Amino acid sequence: MDSTGARRLLNVVDVEATCWDRGQPPGAVSEIIEIGLTVVDLATAERLARHRILVRPARSTVSAFCTELTGLTQHEVDGGVGFAEACRLLAAEHHAGSRPWVSWGDYDRNQFTRQCQSTRTPYPFGRHHTNAKAAFTEAHGLRKRPGMAQALEIAGLRLEGRHHRGEDDAWNIAALVLHLSERGAWPDPTPAAAKKLVCGTDGTG
């Protein structure tokens, strides 16, 4: 039993990608190098599991700035899987196509869309996406959409692990999802509800 019946499961996803502090080098593109995924059960208010997929970039390398930000090194991601295989794993092992999914802002969704299109890789996720940053902003009546770390402070939650590490960020975003659910402020992940929150673009936070 998955997101129907007694269990209400969500995939909370956060990605890290190659990045540079002074612009992209000639010929390089920003590519996903880590996918963090936490499974949440809204029915029991639990974070059930956390997963990490390292992804080997094909058209870029991990800069010193990227390592400083994420802790990820070129040597580490060289041991990862290719992007197409990462998407296959999301679909086959993590029910990405059928389970509603969540990210903090629209960056992660847009990055997957861009990279799938450029590499002709089947998009692994279904239509039911919720922008947790938008949901949090609305629930707390904020004027500006906060970054994840600021949202944790507002919610009275501590940041667990390292910020800008995909696995840890997904775990922390999942805590914010449960915070909103406990307040009765988590939107129902149906196409109509998700469309309201997903439209438009957003930053990474």
Rank of each mutant, 00 (worst) to 15 (best):
T44I: 06
F83V: 02
A134R: 14
E85Y: 02
G156V: 11
A139F: 05
L72F: 14
G156D: 13
L152S: 03
L152H: 02
H140I: 00
A135R: 02
Q150N: 13
T113Y: 00
L90A: 03
R99H: 09
L89K: 12
A86K: 04
G82I: 11
L54K: 05
A58D: 15
A64R: 15
L69I: 12
I154W: 11
P57H: 12
G126C: 04
A139T: 08
P122H: 05
L152R: 01
V77N: 01
R114G: 00
T130H: 05
P122A: 07
F112T: 04
A149R: 08
R47V: 13
I53K: 00
R88D: 15
S63A: 11
A45D: 15
S98A: 15
R127Q: 08
C116Q: 10
G147C: 06
P100K: 08
G36P: 03
L54M: 14
A135C: 08
F65M: 05
D41F: 10
S103K: 00
R47S: 12
S103H: 01
V55S: 02
A134W: 06
W101L: 05
K144T: 11
P57T: 06
S63I: 04
T67D: 08
L48G: 04
C87G: 09
H129D: 02
L152F: 01
V81M: 14
E153V: 11
A151W: 03
K133D: 01
E68N: 07
G71S: 13
G71N: 13
E46D: 13
